[in-house]
């Protein structure tokens, strides 16, 4: 496989090659399935812009679900989380995690857990 770079993380400056992307995406998608994500579901992703976000979003799509992205510093975050119909959320953001307590989200995964 070629070493084509598909992403440069704006925070760390680290690069993500196509090979890394495909591999992490596959692993993350398999894990999402195991956590109950099915075709037609919505998954909330509240991660800062970067390679984690890219891989997480692609993994959610690969698992057959729809991505509902949320900016960690955005307005109305609490409202969006609490009223969301998502069953799973991918986030490390403390405000999003607190809001999840009052939502219908069953499972919360961190970026690290997802391996994304």
């Amino acid at each position: 496989m070629d070493q084509r770079i598909v992403m440069i993380d704006p925070g760390t400056g680290q690069t993500l090659t196509e090979e890394q992307h495909d591999e992490r995406l596959a692993t993350a998608a398999a894990l999402l399935r195991r956590r109950g994500v099915r075709a037609g579901d919505t998954v909330l992703i509240c991660l800062p812009v970067g390679s984690d976000l890219l891989v997480a979003a692609d993994a959610v799509m690969a698992a057959g679900a729809a991505v509902s992205p949320l900016a960690p510093d955005g307005d109305g975050l609490w409202e969006r989380v609490v009223t969301s119909s998502a069953r799973l959320m991918i986030s490390d953001d403390p405000r999003a995690l607190a809001a999840a307590q009052d939502s219908r989200i069953r499972v919360v995964m961190s970026a690290a857990e997802l391996g994304a």
């Binding site: 084509r4 196509e18 995406l25 998608a29 398999a30 399935r33 692609d58 690969a62």
Partner: peptide, 28 residues
Amino acid sequence: RGLSNKAIAEELVISPATVARHIANIMD
């Protein structure tokens, strides 16, 4: 053959996202 999702997608004339989805199904 060590092909990337994109390469497989090109060969099969489908989108890379669809390839990723097939791979998720296989792993499942």
